[in-house]
Design a protein around this nucleic acid. Structure first.
Length: 655
RNA sequence: GCGCCCGUAGCUUAGUUGGAUAGAGCAGCGGACUUCUAAUCCGCAGGUCACAGGUUCGAAUCCUGUCGGGCGUGCCA
């Protein structure tokens, strides 16, 4: 049962009989929403805007709506309050009936399936496979998986696709590394470790030369320029105009800050150079491979041109790379229906450009093939001067393939917000090529920040490895498991630590509004109190503990759902919260934001805790009451487990 | 320069086509343990919703301006 949806549909009927009302009911129904309990369970706020629209007093509209509203089976008599709020309180019988139905629906806990199922492609994670996954991949992976799970749970057809980067310069690096630095025995024994070593080695040499030949001079030049700007700004005489002087002071401040940033950047470049210079072996390699940057691009180009040797190497290395990222996915318990990376679209790219040209959308400019779009300052470049294709080209080919293969109603891209412009241009271009009927959505998210408020990096400035991050979280979670009085074996403690640690990382990420940046903190995500995975998992374990004490299974407890009593306020509040699960999931899907679900589950855990504190279960006054309360416990456990499961978070029986 | 996003309690934040007294959690203070797991619960305190105008029955939310911050911006992804 979804009370909100049900009430809205009743109101829709009532609106049709409202004299003078014409037009779309949907926006009016939006004005009917859950209430915070002070005035009832739901409130309809539509009478006020309707009053304005129809030129009648809102209270009169409210009265007319209530008059024709048929909700007697669901609600107590509606009350009109204030300027025209309609307050609705769900009848206790309706609640207990819905609970009984939810208990019988083992698959969906009473959550209705979508009336019009949509076919949705969800594109998330998308790492570069030759590089180790880092902290930046968490959000896309975790948010994308959660959205896909929820959509599927609601009855939509979901196709998940991991658009991996398996065709880029990283492979040029590995190929170059293989040709010059490989340790064959290491490659045979531990291919992933050896490939990773080669990647890192070549990358550091490329960066070394890049820093020396262009990076350092460029930054010096920028610093000199910035110093001049600062000097000019600070030399400027006050004009006497207050506003102008304030502006000037601000400009100076900003210029000085920018100069500071540049100097820091220079420091890190110098550090990279020093790291090679100070290591005799590396320095010798660097001297020997002076043109490594160019050579790596050449190896990449040869791969793209179907060079036999490089293609063979690519075929040889790819499985090992895939195994490596698969380890991360196994640990995160995330999977995909398809993994169609950049390489899959390789031979379709030329056709994309030709097609754009034939449609008259793409034209040549400065040797590059560009789509000039109205409303955009920069062109959407689909082929470079040197003839190489870009990710814009691949993305267009990918859309075409997905439409052809799956005929989706929507394609969601769970990608960080810095690529916003790219997707705006991509979608605008696609719309002009016959993709008008598909919803293309950039489900963007903010940056993961360190506790200093800057993007989360290691002390040396490199990206934080994802596996190391998970290990650290699990290590710290182990301290929580070690404190548990109920965990007896080391194995069990370790399993619990794993679930708390990984769950903590996922939950912290999902609990934040995806559009804002969020601050990564082990201490906060692993706290036992507050809105964390550990608290949610503990809540679940406590509920499960009841069944052990009462010597019943969850299924037996659930059987009592046919006659649940909600006489106490705590029981009623818990029951209502249980029945709002469907609403929470609807909200997640509405704007693709899983934080609505974490918020719901946290509220549920709190409602349960309050119930548990005030309503004895095993020691209930009567057998009937005990059975009723056990059923509430069982539904709470099921809902917590199901909700957390949709978020990709596993529960534990005891902790 | 131009474009996009953001600014809510000491900290982390919820709040989306405008709704009733802006909700939480953490930290702080005060209560409740011969326990159904106190790893919990209850209460208190804490807010000029960055600032200034405007729109109206009503604004954290919409509009304009200001201040502060992040990101992006022709050949990386």
């Amino acid at each position: 049962m979804n009370f909100l949806a049900e009430i809205r549909s009743r109101f829709a009927k009532s609106l049709h009989s409202l004299t003078g009302f014409e037009g779309d009911v949907a926006p009016v129904l939006e004005q009917i929403r859950p209430s915070d309990g002070k005035f009832g369970d739901y409130q309809a706020n539509c009478a006020m805007p309707l009053g304005k629209q129809l030129g009648k007093p809102p209270r009169e509209i409210a009265a007319a709506l209530v008059e024709s509203l048929d909700v007697a089976d669901l609600c107590e008599v509606p009350e009109i309050a204030g300027p025209g709020f309609i307050n609705l309180k769900i009848k206790d019988e309706a609640i207990t009936t819905a609970l009984a139905a939810a208990a019988k629906d083992t698959q969906h806990l009473g959550v209705p399936q979508a009336a019009e199922p949509r076919c949705m492609v969800v594109d998330y994670s998308s790492p570069n496979v030759a590089k180790p996954m880092h902290v930046g991949h968490i959000r896309s992976t975790v948010i994308g998986a959660a959205i896909a799970n929820v959509l599927r749970f609601l009855g939509h057809k979901v196709i998940t696709d991991n658009h991996i980067g398996d065709w880029g310069t990283q492979f040029g690096m590995i190929i170059y590394g293989y040709k010059h630095f490989v340790d064959e025995s290491a490659l045979a024994k531990e291919p992933v470790a050896e490939l990773s070593r080669l990647y890192k080695l070549v990358n550091s040499l490329v960066e070394y030369h890049g820093a020396k030949t262009s990076g350092l001079p460029a930054i010096n030049e920028r610093i000199a320029k910035q110093e001049q700007t600062v000097a000019e700004l600070s030399a400027a005489e006050p004009t006497g105009d207050k506003k102008a002087d304030k502006q000037a002071a601000k400009k100076l401040r900003q210029a000085e800050a920018a100069l500071g940033d540049l100097r820091k950047e220079k420091e890190s470049i110098e550090k990279k150079i020093a790291a090679v210079d100070e290591d005799a072996t590396l320095a010798a390699m660097a001297a020997e491979h002076a043109t490594i940057g160019r050579a790596v691009l050449d190896e990449t180009a040869k791969l793209h041109a179907d060079d036999v040797t490089n293609k063979e190497l690519w075929n040889k290395f790819l499985p090992a790379c895939m195994d490596e990222i698969q380890k991360t996915y196994d640990r995160l318990n995330v999977s995909f229906d398809h993994t169609l990376g950049e390489s899959f679209y390789h031979d379709r790219l030329a056709a994309v450009v030709t097609d754009l040209q034939q449609r008259g959308l793409a034209t040549e400019s400065d040797g590059a093939m560009c789509v000039f779009l109205e409303g955009f300052a920069a062109p959407f470049i689909v082929r470079k001067q040197d003839g190489a294709f870009l990710y814009s080209t691949t993305d267009l080919a990918t859309i075409a393939y997905r439409l052809e293969e799956w005929q989706p109603d929507a394609i969601l891209y769970v990608v960080d917000h810095r690529q916003g412009l790219h997707f705006e241009q991509l979608f605008a271009t696609a719309k002009q090529c016959g993709c008008e009927n598909v919803e293309l959505e950039h489900v963007s998210f903010g940056t993961v920040l360190g506790e200093d408020g800057k993007p989360y990096k290691t002390r040396s400035g490199s990206a934080v490895g994802l596996m190391g991050l998970l290990d650290e979280a699990v290590d710290r979670a182990r301290a929580i498991a070690d404190e548990s009085p109920v965990l007896t074996t080391d194995d069990e403690r370790q399993q619990v630590a794993e679930r708390i640690g990984i769950g903590g990382i996922k939950y912290a990420d999902l609990a934040h509004n995806r559009t804002s940046d969020y601050t990564f903190s082990y201490d906060k995500m692993l706290a036992m109190n507050g809105n964390t995975a550990a608290y949610m998992q503990y809540s679940y374990a406590r509920v499960r503990g009841i069944f052990g004490k009462a010597k019943v299974t969850e299924e037996q407890a659930l059987a009592g759902a046919d006659s649940i009593s909600i006489d106490s306020p705590e029981e009623r509040a818990l029951a209502m919260q249980l029945l709002r699960f469907a609403e929470a999931l609807d909200k997640v899907v509405e704007d693709y934001r899983p934080n609505h679900l974490t918020a719901y589950l946290f509220d549920l855990a709190q409602a349960y805790a309050t119930f548990f504190q005030n309503c004895p279960v095993i020691k209930a006054e009567t057998e009937e009451l005990k059975s009723s309360r056990l059923a509430l416990c069982a539904l709470s456990a099921r809902t917590l487990e199901t909700g957390l499961g949709l978020l990709g978070i596993e529960c534990v029986e005891r902790m």
